[in-house]
Amino acid sequence: MAEFIEHNLQGVDSAILAVPVALAEGIVWEDLARMVKDEKMAGNPIAGLIDKLHFEKNCMIEVVLALSAHANSQRWYELKKSQERKQGKTFTPHKKAFKLAEKKIHLQLSQV
Score class of each variant (00 low, 15 high):
110 S>P: 00
22 A>G: 05
19 V>H: 02
58 N>K: 09
1 M>W: 09
8 N>M: 06
83 Q>F: 14
19 V>K: 01
72 N>E: 08
100 L>V: 15
99 K>R: 12
79 L>W: 10
86 K>Y: 08
13 D>Y: 04
94 H>C: 02
5 I>P: 05
54 H>F: 05
110 S>Q: 13
96 K>Y: 00
13 D>H: 04
91 F>D: 08
109 L>P: 04
22 A>V: 08
66 A>P: 01
79 L>K: 11
55 F>P: 12
29 W>C: 02
60 M>G: 05
36 V>K: 09
14 S>V: 02
8 N>S: 06
41 M>F: 03
99 K>G: 00
76 W>I: 02
98 F>Y: 15
25 E>Y: 04
9 L>D: 02
112 V>T: 08
107 L>D: 15
34 R>S: 07
106 H>P: 00
111 Q>F: 04
47 A>G: 03
52 K>P: 00
48 G>N: 08
1 M>C: 02
88 G>Q: 07
92 T>I: 12
90 T>H: 06
110 S>M: 10
48 G>M: 07
24 A>P: 01
3 E>C: 00
56 E>A: 09
65 L>H: 05
7 H>D: 11
81 K>G: 12
81 K>W: 15
96 K>H: 02
75 R>F: 14
107 L>Y: 13
25 E>P: 01
61 I>M: 14
30 E>W: 01
96 K>D: 08
30 E>A: 08
40 K>E: 03
88 G>C: 06
87 Q>P: 00
68 S>K: 02
107 L>G: 10
2 A>T: 09
96 K>L: 00
20 P>S: 06
